[in-house]
Simulated assay, not measured.
Amino acid sequence: MKIGFCGLGRMGQPMVRRLLGAGYQVSIWNRSKDKALALLEAGASWCDTPAQMAQQCEAVFLCVFDAQAVHDTVLGEQGLATVQGALQIVVDHSSISPRATREMAAQLQQRCGADWLDAPVSGGVGGAEQGTLAIMVGGQAAQLERVRPALAAYSQRVTLMGAVGAGQVTKLCNQTIVATTLTAIAEALSLANDNGVDASKISEALGGGWADSVLLQLFVPRMTQRDNQVKASVDTMLKDLNTVAELASASHTSMPVAHAAQQSYRVAHRLGLGEQDVARITHVNSYNYGE
C-alpha cells in the first residue's frame, strides 16, 4: 500500500519517520514545505497538493490542527476529494469534533467514493517517536484492517470504538481526563510550594499510591524544572476542551470539572502561554484574578 501523509507538525513528523522505517513508500504534503525537507532526505516523496496525493496513494493519513485544516485538506480547492484517483481510505489522526467528522466523511464518500476512519491518537510526541501511541478509531472494521499494519508502525494499541465519529468522541474523553488531571497536578504543586514543601519531590512521594499515574510521573518534572521544550501546547489542549464543551452541550452532559479546567486553560491563553507547553498551566495558579 502506498501511503500519503498530510500534516508535518510535532506529531506528523515522527509518525512519517516510523512509516519510512517500516518500509512504506510515503508521499507527504504540508502547507509549508520547509517542514518536509528532513523527511524528503529520509526517503519520503513530495506532493504539491493533496489532490496530487489522492491520485497516487491508496490511503492518506492526516494529522493537522483543527477541523478547518481537515476540511481544506480533504474538501478544499486542491483537496483529496477533488479527483478520482487511487484514494480509497482517509485516516484522520487530527482531534476535531465528531459532528464535523461525520459531515466531512459523508462528503468525501459522495465526491470520490473513499471511506473515512477517524483515528485520533494519545501518547504525545514521545509516543509517536517510540511507536507506542494509542489510537481510537471510528469507521468500518474492514477498512481498519486494511491500514492496521501501517498504524502498527507508530502505535501499540488500536481500538475500533464504533462508527465514524466514535474515535473523536473517545479522544475527547481522553482529553477530558488528561486536562483535568494536569490541572489538579498543577494545583497540588502550588499547594506544596505555598506551604514550604519541595514540589519536585511530589511524584516520588506519591509513587505507588492512589494518586500515582503516568501523568503525575511525567508532568511533575516538566512543571517544576521549567523545561522550555513544547511537546503539546496550551492552545492545542484548549481547542480540545472547547470541543468537549460543544459536545457536552449537544448531548446535555454535565461536566463541571472539565468546565473548570477549560477556564484555567483560557486564563493561560490570556496570559500569553498559548504556544507554550501544557506544563505551563502551573502559571495560572499565581495569576491575580482581581487584576
Rank of each mutant, 00 (worst) to 15 (best):
R157C: 13
L191F: 13
L206E: 02
A150S: 08
E204Q: 11
G167T: 04
G208V: 01
I185C: 03
I135W: 00
A188E: 02
L133M: 08
L182N: 01
V178H: 00
Q156W: 01
S203F: 04
L191H: 10
A192F: 08
S155D: 08
P149C: 05
A211D: 00
Q156P: 07
G138A: 03
A163F: 08
A211L: 14
A188R: 11
Y154G: 01
M161Y: 01
Q175K: 12
L206W: 13
L151Y: 02
A205W: 06
L160P: 09
E187L: 11
G131L: 10
G209K: 01
G131A: 06
C173H: 12
G165T: 02
A134W: 00
V169T: 13
G196W: 06
L172F: 03
L191R: 12
V197S: 05
L133A: 11
V147I: 12
R148A: 14
A205Y: 03
V178T: 08
G138T: 05
A186F: 03
S155P: 09
I202T: 07
S155K: 10
A188S: 14
W210T: 13
M161Q: 04
A166P: 04
A152W: 03
I202M: 14
A150V: 13
S203K: 11
L172S: 03
W210P: 07
N193A: 15
L133P: 03
Q140E: 15
T176Y: 14
G139P: 11
T180L: 07
D198C: 09
A150H: 05
V158A: 10
S203A: 15
K171D: 05
T183F: 11
Q156Y: 03
Q130V: 01
A188H: 10
Q140H: 15
V147L: 02
Y154M: 08
E187F: 09
T170W: 01
A192E: 05
E187P: 10
D198H: 07
Q175L: 07
Q140K: 15
A192R: 06
K171Y: 04
I202F: 10
L160M: 07
K201H: 13
I177K: 09
S155Y: 00
A205E: 00
G139D: 07
L144T: 04
T176P: 05
S200V: 10
A186L: 06
D194N: 15
A141H: 08
A134Y: 04
V164N: 07
V164P: 09
A150G: 08
M136A: 14
A188G: 15
Q143P: 09
A166V: 05
A184K: 09
K201F: 00
G196D: 13
R148C: 07
N195R: 10
E187I: 12
A152V: 03
Q156G: 12
A166I: 09
A188F: 08
V164W: 03
A184N: 06
G162W: 07
A166H: 09
Q168V: 02
A184G: 14
P149Q: 03
M161I: 06
A166S: 14
L172C: 04
S203T: 10
R146F: 13
L160I: 12
V164C: 13
Q175S: 10
N174W: 01
A192C: 15
R146H: 15
D194P: 00
G138I: 05
L160F: 09
G208M: 01
A188Q: 12
S203L: 05
L182Y: 04
G138P: 09
V147T: 02
G131Q: 07
A184M: 06
L206P: 00
Q168G: 06
D212R: 06
V197T: 13
V178N: 00
